[in-house]
């Protein structure tokens, strides 16, 4: 039982970080109807932004996370205005393909630029708090605990923002129907910019929170990006709540899968397979994901 709890708690913590990453991805998708293939690189940039803020500006690690989120919000806004904006005009005919190409291009560009700018060698910011919380058989490092708490705070704040503020409701309105939202005076293009900025900031938050737990490298976002895609499909495309539940579920299932798979020698190598199996079973039962809405497509 202790062993089960240990694995479940570890999975929960990692799942919350996954959820944070996936919430940004799903926010962008729900409002812009764009699958952001560059989300993993935003996560990577967030990690490095936090590292440089802590190392060169001398700010404490939590402030590094905040600064990384602010910086990537700005990056997201600029990227959306400069690169994605033509998609909403008549300049671009094949909008879906355009979105795939530019966001995928963002990944290739930033990944390779990352190796040049940040260097090929791993980096790591200092821990939020060194040591581990040991309660009987349960062991959890303070870094993981703090990251999990921060993820809960950020996800709660996001949920509150989307449900209780006029800007959040405007984003929700655009996610449901761009034209109907425009009729009641909401500027959809402005909402696209806000959504992409927020999504980028959430990815950056996840990257900055994970940086002291793992390590920074230019390709650190590759696997989390894949997991984020699994999560948004699992939770339901476009559902922020679904991505939170999906992230936690994925983290726990992967952790328990590795811990209890009958062949201990192959269990770790099958980590991603456990997530894929979870996705397949969920889609068999609920083809739109756990909380998905049908008909999510750019108008």
């Amino acid at each position: 039982m202790d062993y089960f709890a240990l694995l479940a708690i570890n999975g929960l913590v990692i799942g919350l970080i996954y959820a944070l990453m996936a919430a940004g991805l799903t926010l962008i998708f729900s409002v812009l109807k764009v699958v952001n293939f560059g989300h993993g690189t935003l996560y990577m940039l967030g990690g490095y932004a936090s590292y440089y803020a802590i190392t060169y500006l001398g700010v404490p690690p939590p402030a590094g996370v905040v600064l990384a989120m602010v910086a990537l919000f700005a990056f997201g806004v600029v990227f959306e205005r400069l690169v994605l904006h033509p998609m909403y005009t008549n300049k671009v005919e094949r909008k879906d393909e355009y979105a795939i190409i530019v966001t995928f291009g963002l990944t290739v560009l930033l990944l390779n630029l990352g190796i040049v700018v940040f260097g090929p060698f791993s980096k790591s910011p200092p821990p939020f708090l060194a040591g581990a919380l040991i309660a009987g058989p349960l062991i959890i490092t303070y870094d993981r605990l703090i990251a999990a708490i921060a993820a809960i705070v950020l996800l709660s704040a996001l949920s509150w923002f989307l449900a209780r503020t006029s800007l959040g409701q405007a984003l929700d309105a655009v996610s449901q129907s761009r034209e109907s939202a425009a009729v009641i005076g909401i500027n959809p293009r402005r909402m696209y910019t806000v959504a992409f900025g927020l999504g980028s900031a959430l990815a950056a938050g996840a990257g900055a929170l994970i940086a002291p737990i793992f390590a920074l490298s230019p390709n650190m976002g590759e696997l989390p990006a894949v997991q984020a895609f699994i999560i948004i499909v699992l939770g339901g495309m476009g559902s922020v709540g679904g991505s939170i539940v999906g992230g936690i579920l994925l983290g726990v299932v992967e952790g328990l899968g590795v811990g209890f798979f009958p062949d201990p020698n192959r269990a770790l190598a099958y980590t991603e397979a456990f997530g894929a199996l979870l996705l397949v079973f969920t889609l068999l039962v609920r083809p739109t994901g756990l909380f998905g809405r049908p008909h999510a497509r750019l108008e």
Partner: peptide, 21 residues
């Protein structure tokens, strides 16, 4: 015993917990 690891993995904690226990 041999535990196979994929190089792109980042979280080894569940496998380490299994070995530790």
């Amino acid at each position: 015993n041999v535990v196979t690891v994929e190089l792109n993995q980042q979280d080894f904690t569940p496998a380490l917990l299994r070995l530790m226990n």
